[in-house]
Amino acid sequence: MLTKRVTVTVHASDPLSRAGLISHLRHQPSLDVLPERGEDGRERAPGTEGEAAVAVMLADRIDESATAELRRLLRGRDQRVVLVAGELREPDLLSVVEYGVRAIIWRHQATEQRLLSAVHSAARGEGELPPDLVSRLLNQVGRLQRATAAGATAGGSVPLFGMAPREVDVLRLLAEGLDTRQISEKLAYSERTVKNILHALMTRLRLTNRAHAVAYALREGYI
């Protein structure tokens, strides 16, 4: 079965780093790498003229300029970003996920195959995180979850929206790193049912992607 071609833009503050990413992606048969700037000389963001589906952004660290660039790339409708990161501090991790970044790859692990997989996952609306980042995300939202529970015990607010048991089941398996096919096999659902459950959940709670849904569920104490 032929893989649908995905159009990509590449963004990095360092021209040499950007050129390296482009060299990894440009000769992939399933990708079309668009110039960062259009014919008018303006910077091109995914989803604007040229129909780029995914933006690949390289950032050594999430500082003020990197955050501004992420927001610029994600401000349009249904933007999909793959972040190649040199380092991520814990306070930055949840923020990056909640911004709507679809996939994160460590810079030192950014092989051609990893980049290709992340781009196609992002184009499908799915996400990818390195295993060590999943662990850090779980720890971080666990702390937030306990703080939320303490606030509720002290008379604070409780989550406005609930989750159905099957939504929780799907998100729990998603948090364990299973993909759509594996979740469908585990729960004896069709893949379409799993996708519909996630789509309905994310639409109802206004969550940007699967990683954001897992983070929300963990933070609110559902998983």
Rank of each mutant, 00 (worst) to 15 (best):
L198R: 02
R206D: 00
H27Q: 11
G41Q: 06
T7H: 12
L138G: 01
R146I: 08
G76W: 05
R72A: 09
R37Y: 11
L70R: 14
V119F: 08
H212K: 05
P131C: 08
A12E: 01
A213H: 07
K4A: 09
D78P: 03
V97Q: 06
V33P: 01
P159C: 14
L73P: 05
G151H: 07
P130C: 11
D179K: 03
G50D: 01
M57W: 07
E191G: 01
A118T: 04
S190K: 00
T203R: 07
L198D: 07
L115W: 12
Y216I: 02
Q140F: 05
T48Q: 15
E87W: 08
V168C: 01
S117R: 11
L144T: 10
Y189R: 08
A147F: 12
L207Y: 11
V170C: 02
A85L: 10
S30G: 02
G127V: 04
T193W: 11
R77E: 07
V81P: 11
A217W: 02
E69R: 15
T67M: 13
D14L: 08
R75A: 15
L173S: 10
V54D: 03
R89F: 04
R136A: 13
R5F: 00
S65I: 13
I197R: 01
G47V: 03
A68R: 15
R136D: 10
H120I: 00
A217I: 02
S135L: 10
E185I: 01
T111M: 06
R26A: 08
L133G: 06
H11E: 00
L171P: 11
G38Y: 05
A55P: 01
L70D: 00
H212I: 05
P165I: 08
V96T: 10
A103H: 03
L207D: 01
K186N: 09
E112T: 12
S65C: 11
A150L: 13
E39C: 10
A123R: 01
T193P: 00
E64D: 15
L160N: 15
V141K: 04
A149F: 03
T193E: 07
R5L: 04
A52F: 05
I105N: 04
R107E: 15
A52M: 04
S65V: 15
V10T: 03
G221T: 11
S17P: 00
V97L: 14
A213I: 07
R192V: 12
T7W: 09
L144R: 15
D32N: 13
L198Q: 09
K4T: 05
N196T: 12
D179L: 02
R124T: 07
I22W: 02
H120Y: 02
N196Q: 14
L34A: 12
V84W: 11
R204D: 12
L160F: 14
D78V: 03
G125Y: 06
F161D: 13
R206G: 04
W106R: 10
E191P: 00
T193R: 14
A213V: 07
A175M: 07
L137W: 00
R77V: 11
L207R: 13
S190P: 01
E98V: 04
M57Q: 11
L116T: 09
N139D: 14
P131E: 12
E90A: 15
R219E: 13
R146C: 05
T3D: 09
L94M: 03
S13T: 13
L207T: 09
L173W: 07
G151T: 08
R136L: 13
A213P: 09
K4Y: 05
